[in-house]
Design a binder for these strands. Structure first.
Lengths: 197, 197, 197, 197
DNA sequence: TTTTAAGCGAGACGGTACGTCTTGTCTTTGC
DNA sequence: GCAAAGACAAGACGTACCGTCTCGCTTAAAA
């Protein structure tokens, strides 16, 4: 029989404290900005000790990454909608909804910014967020390819880069997010058939 | 006509020191990463005093922004190439060339990251870099519209968002930059004529 | 009765670090002079962080004041010697001994100098050093008065001012300290009986 | 014989600026304390350039030392008063009058404090102030000795140390200056004849 | 008259210390 | 053995002055 490696002795991790820390990190980011957040401040607001934060998370960005998952449902629907166009539309609406959740945009900005500074966190952010969403989109493109209605001159990777590029560029460099017209235009762009060639 | 308000009294700013600081900031960013750069370190390497840095730049990111302009030619060619397709191609090649300049990619990452943390710098980054390049691209789109060969279902703004989104997403979230095939695909995507509708 | 308000949580103050800081401050003052001492330098030599110094002392002068108490026994013997003359003599010898401890003179100079610049420290210096020694001398004068052999035309306060004035003037304005002949002369001056009048 | 080596070419020193700097230094010391005075601040208030201050004075303490001479007459009357007692009395009243000039006490404190930190200034302070006053007092003692009414058991040096010690101790360590009773008591102490021996 | 040499106000310069802030670790007591 | 509290070493922050060095101008003696 497999043994539990550790017989689990001592006090257990406090779930209440964990949630309090995640909530504190999320709220503080919105209130004072990520740069203004300190581990000590998060611990203070959560009624926790600083060491408790460090014991379970490597950096404050990791706390925020987990807090984001708690705050917004990060799972993306990839249900079969019958057509590539419909599924792209669903994906974009899903993304727009995520960005509309209060606080998500500043948190995403902070996380992407942190990913530029900290290589280790960069990987965790990619695994915990970026690749996750990208995989969903590529599922859609793959299904379209199987169906035979995929766009002929865009690879799946480039299509994904364009879509995520648009979303991230809007988040990072502008104040405009995804609107109805953006969704329509992108949907058409990706699914239209070129004249000939 | 605007007159110089002050007749320029006192010792003049040292151009040599200015260049030494810009070079030091650029080099240090490549060597230890933006997060590892300190104003003191930049001043030290430049043989300058810390106050001299603070006298002329608000943050180390501003130093880097100016250093970027010194290192790489940020002007974008928007010469009339006869067709929208040719001009988009020229713009993308120009952008790829900028990214190929040693050190430009990590510097751009750092600047965009800093723009997320510091609202004031965000504006200076937009004015000093983002809108500058964007304006060049929009000039191209506008000329296409005047010619009548612009893409029918994309607004100039969305086209720009897609192009810059792709570039920035590649820089920030991936290791891949713009390749020959990317340029070709984007050029075609933006200039193709939809079949009907 | 006053209770300890807090049951003392968290890590305790490191006595080892405290002593290292006091020793470093004392040594550095002798080596480079008080003006050349920096809090950072003290912390460095003590193997401590700068914040640890600031956590427990308001200024470097306060560190030195405490270091002085550590280095030299600041308690003054006021034992009953039978006569005013004998007790004045003992007090002066005690003072001369204090000044003879290596480093005490430059430290006293520094502290008195700092007390002129910093009003807050001035009070702490008075409480922690000046009044302490003065009280000892005044005890002697009071006992003489009780005995009836006190000097007739000097108040206790003026006698103290003269004695401490002499000592401090020698320390601050000259290179000469208290010698055997000074002690003898002052003892006689204070205890002699005026001829008539 | 050696003549003035330079026949004085170029622009002459501005007396107006000199006075403005002295006044500014004196006033600023009273307003913000010596520690709060900066050379830049003195120059600013005087409407002068920083270099002009440094051209003529080594430190801000030297400016203040000269300002003191401008503000208060530092010459001490040593006129023959007929008796030692009368001359000591005159000397003490003269000293009390000096201390009563507005601003003199804080300035003296600052200068003596600075003399503890800066060895070079210490000598200039001794030459420009301390010895000057001390010489006056010793003239009085010498005349008394010539007359034959000098105190038998105090050397001139010790008598001077006691008198200046008292004055300086009052200035540096207390808030009390010289009063009528102090003058009387010191005069008597120094001039009284011991009973016998 | 022209030149030449300071003095001057202004202010940028290379430095250095300041006192604060944050980081991530360590230590203590209590649960 | 986790948790809260908080002291610790380390070191960057942005500010304030230091004393020096231009800069362009003014002043006055020398040529």
């Amino acid at each position: 029989m497999a043994e539990d490696p550790a017989p689990a002795r001592g006090r257990k991790r406090s779930e209440q404290t964990r949630l309090a820390i995640l909530a504190a990190a999320y709220e503080l980011t919105l209130e004072v900005g990520f740069a203004g957040v300190t581990v000590e401040g998060v611990a203070k607001r959560a009624g926790a000790g600083k060491q408790t934060v460090y014991r379970w998370w490597a950096t404050k960005a990791d706390v925020l990454l987990e807090a984001l998952a708690l705050k917004a449902d990060l799972t993306v629907s990839t249900a079969d909608q019958g057509s590539f166009e419909a599924e792209v539309d669903a994906f974009l609406r899903d993304s727009a909804a995520l960005l509309a959740v209060p606080g998500v945009v500043p948190v995403l900005r902070s996380l992407m910014a942190e990913a530029q500074r900290d290589t280790d966190f960069r990987h965790r952010f990619q695994d915990g967020f970026l690749t996750r969403r990208r995989a969903a989109f590529e599922t859609v493109v793959a299904r379209a390819a199987a169906r035979g209605d995929k766009p002929v001159h865009l690879t799946a990777a480039l299509a994904a880069d364009l879509v995520f590029g648009l979303i991230w560029y809007r988040v990072l460099a502008t104040e405009r997010l995804l609107g109805e017209d953006d969704i329509t235009a992108v949907r058409r762009l990706l699914s239209e058939q070129p004249g000939e060639e």
